[in-house]
Design a protein around this nucleic acid. Structure first.
Lengths: 205, 205, 205, 205
DNA sequence: GATGAATGAGTGTTCATTCAT
DNA sequence: AATGAATGAACACTCATTCAT
């Protein structure tokens, strides 16, 4: 895990946004250089290649996912509250890292590139394991149903989020969310609550 | 609405798949020409440009969405059964048209391209209206809750589907779906049932 | 063995000269394009890459070497005269094809490129075989020595030629060969005669 | 004539080999820096530019040629033995300095670079003069012919050497010289003897 | 109506060199 | 005295598109 200097981090940050907006192929190194106010040669100089820059971005951000939702389990709250907190934290985290998720989304589909993202799969599996523990706790407390589809929970949360986020304009119009702030508020409050309730609806007897 | 000749339709069909797999920028006209066994100049000749080909693909497929789910409402079945049918048909339709959905997904994000897809928004709105009617029916029958979040229902269904579909490999491993057929069966049966139940869970009192 | 169209042949001809003068690495596609009055993209379009253009040049010229010196053997002249004719023809041939020889020379040294030139080796071996037959004939006629170093003969002829040719300026000054024509005359007459005598000196008892 | 410090000499030594192997254009400063374990800026720092480094290499080695074959003339041996010694020394010297010869060879052809090498021409002329003296001695002794082509003698020796050396692989196979040592032995013994005999064949009446 | 040839703009990358330190 | 960081120019090559036929 190499450390990046401030300029490298700026390149990563700028490129992250461009890749999320226009895709990997749709973004040229010259655009990146312009946006980051650096020389075109700098990307190759710092990261070796455009593809390695992509990998660097993913690695840089994915490693940030590591310190995740573990502490929820330890808190002295009910299983129901834990699920609520899990969903809220999960959505918040996805929202904050929506750019890198978008990129991963692009690139996971184009499986020709950076063949696999084992680190990312690992995190997804860890999250699932944490969720399973919370649910198991609720099951021993006889609050949650016995046969719960754990796998579908992150699927629904993350899928629904991006379905809305990727069709932002459509839903902004539909839900009268005039500006970006009200959209953000919607996601972090109403949408989050709705998701919580749906998930709990799946779990509670 | 221009009619396309068989060769144009073949180009559309071939390109649809390539765009879905590799994205618009990731697919070159040469690849298309090779895959469709036509001359490189044909694409420009028939469609004007690569971008216009994209628009043609979208228009061609989106118009196929038109004849949609309207007849559900007319059927002599319960509101609950109508929702189940709606969800099943919806997923089936998305699954069948996953390529064009994938493309739209790509391109809606890159909003620089083909500024908007009004036809597509129209269809989404129509579907929502139909769904609202079904729900209203269930509400007058006192089967469904009064305040239901209609908007979220397609969001959850379509979002969850693509969350799974785009991470096919990950979920195939997780759910032990060895081949494409068992994956398809999972989507059209288990996943569909799960979605139905979740949606009904949101609606039923 | 693909046929080349006139434009391709012109590219080959122009590039041949540039490669001979400035080497492969020292010649840019832009220079070639300028010299051949074509678009920069044409080289890649016609030959695939700069390296494949080099291979095309070599193949194109080396195939011309094929029809070589075979008919000398059949002629009704003495072994001594055959050797004289062999040397004269050999030098003439090298002189005419000095550009491609120069390129091969460059590229054989840089063995990283186009790993080997089996076609070229083949021709060299064939020439050696032909020479051996002539010498054997002279040996049975008791004109030539028994133990002759056949291998060294082409080495001396070709080596000496290029030693002079590559230091043209130096030897033009030294031998008072003011212009290109007198240099050419020197090569095809005096130098050729000298070489003949030296080779015959090696062979004759 | 500037003196070079040990680091400069190392750069010269390392680069000499790289230039001989891959040519001037084919060798990048980064490669040189890596091979000599120095910073990329060092070359420009010490020599001004890549081209000036080339000139430095040539100058450095060519000056070593200076102390050459002069003492042969003084020795109390026959003219024939002097020629034999001259040829042997000449080949040995070329063999030892084959790298710089290779570079000169490259660069003399590309006459755009380092316009001329007067120092080198000087040495060649000196060698010719020495040879002429030896031959003249032999002529007064009535051992050598009256009209001898002095100029051709170094041409043949140096030309033949490089014709073999540059096609090392081909001749190693042809002459069954399995490794580098046996090739070296061949050059310094058999080849040298052959050359001596050929040259003497040209000279002796 | 259809296409092979051709093109200029653009791609990612490498280059020798410079410069602040 | 020596260097890591940085740069603009050039590199080979691919792109979508055009055009004469």
């Amino acid at each position: 895990m190499t450390e990046y200097n401030p300029k490298q981090i700026e390149i990563i940050t700028v490129t992250e946004k461009l890749f999320a907006e226009k895709g990997f192929d749709g973004t040229s190194i010259r655009e990146i250089a312009k946006a980051a106010d650096i020389n075109v040669a700098m990307v190759s100089y710092y990261f070796g290649s455009k593809e390695k820059l992509l990998e660097a971005i993913i690695l840089y951000r994915v490693s940030a996912f590591r310190i995740m939702l573990e502490n929820i389990q330890a808190e002295a709250i009910s299983s129901k509250e834990k699920i609520e907190k899990f969903v809220a934290l999960y959505i918040k985290r996805i929202y904050q890292n929506r750019d890198i998720y978008q990129i991963l989304h692009y690139e996971i589909i184009n499986q020709n590139r950076t063949s696999n993202f084992p680190a990312f799969s690992e995190i997804k599996k860890n999250n699932l394991k944490l969720l399973e523990e919370i649910i198991k706790e609720g099951q021993t407390e006889k609050i949650f149903k016995e046969n719960c589809n754990t796998v579908l929970i992150p699927v629904i949360v993350i899928g629904s989020f991006f379905q809305i986020y990727n069709n932002k304009k459509f839903y902004q119009e539909l839900l009268s969310l005039d500006d970006d702030l009200s959209f953000e508020n919607y996601i972090l409050n109403d949408f989050t609550n709705n998701m919580s309730n749906i998930i709990l609806g799946m779990l509670i007897q």
